[in-house]
Amino acid sequence: MLRRTYDGQTCSIARTLEVVGERWTLLIVRDAARGVTRFDGFLDSLPIARNVLSDRLGTLVRHGVLERVRYQDRPPRHEYRLTAKGRELMPVLLALMEWGDRHLNDESGPPVVAEHAGCGGAVDVRLTCRECQGSVAPAEVVTREV
């Protein structure tokens, strides 16, 4: 398989794409966040080849996004569970979902909604300034090298 790498780029986005930028990877993380933990469960939820799934799961385990936990000894079988590091990708997934709902949705509305487990309220991703605590519009965000 031809690997795409971002060698030589001093960029946190490029470094992150090295871990989660391959096709299927964020969908595996999405399904893990929805409670899928077993290899066959991922195969059932995604139209993905076994070898590709195995590769993606291995990458996510190596980078600490998922942990591999044995649930059966004979034959040995493992589950893949999101780590705290993996759960920190939830805002990324929600941002992609919100963007897709806004720009790629059909007339039937969004296929999935995000809700707070505690009260059932809608959950969204917001840009907030750490200094003044105010909301920031996407057009108001600038980046600079440090």
Rank of each mutant, 00 (worst) to 15 (best):
L82N: 03
R62T: 10
E79G: 13
E88H: 12
G41M: 05
M90F: 05
L43W: 08
L96D: 06
A122F: 00
G120T: 00
D40A: 05
R62C: 00
P91L: 07
S54G: 12
D55I: 00
P75I: 11
G100L: 09
Q133C: 11
G86Y: 02
E67K: 12
G121L: 01
L96V: 13
R126Q: 12
S135I: 13
V29L: 13
G134C: 11
G100H: 11
I28M: 06
L43S: 11
S108N: 10
A117H: 11
A33L: 14
C129E: 11
A84M: 01
W99S: 14
P47D: 10
Q72I: 04
Y71V: 15
V36T: 15
R34H: 06
M90A: 06
H78P: 07
R130I: 12
R56V: 02
K85C: 01
A137R: 14
D101I: 01
G58V: 05
A95L: 08
H63M: 00
E79R: 14
R130T: 15
R68I: 06
L127I: 15
G41E: 08
C129M: 13
V113K: 14
I28T: 04
N51R: 08
R77Q: 14
E115W: 01
M90Q: 04
A32Y: 03
S135T: 15
L43I: 13
E131I: 12
D44S: 09
D44Q: 09
L82A: 05
A114N: 03
C132I: 12
T59N: 13
L93F: 02
F42N: 06
K85Y: 04
R81F: 07
V29N: 04
G58S: 14
R30C: 01
H78E: 08
V52S: 13
V113W: 00
D101H: 07
L127W: 10
R62G: 08
D40H: 12
W99Y: 15
R102C: 00
S108G: 05
E88M: 05
L94I: 14
N105F: 00
T37K: 10
V29S: 02
G64V: 07
T59Y: 02
E98T: 13
L60P: 04
Y80K: 01
R70M: 12
G120N: 01
P47A: 07
D101E: 08
P47H: 00
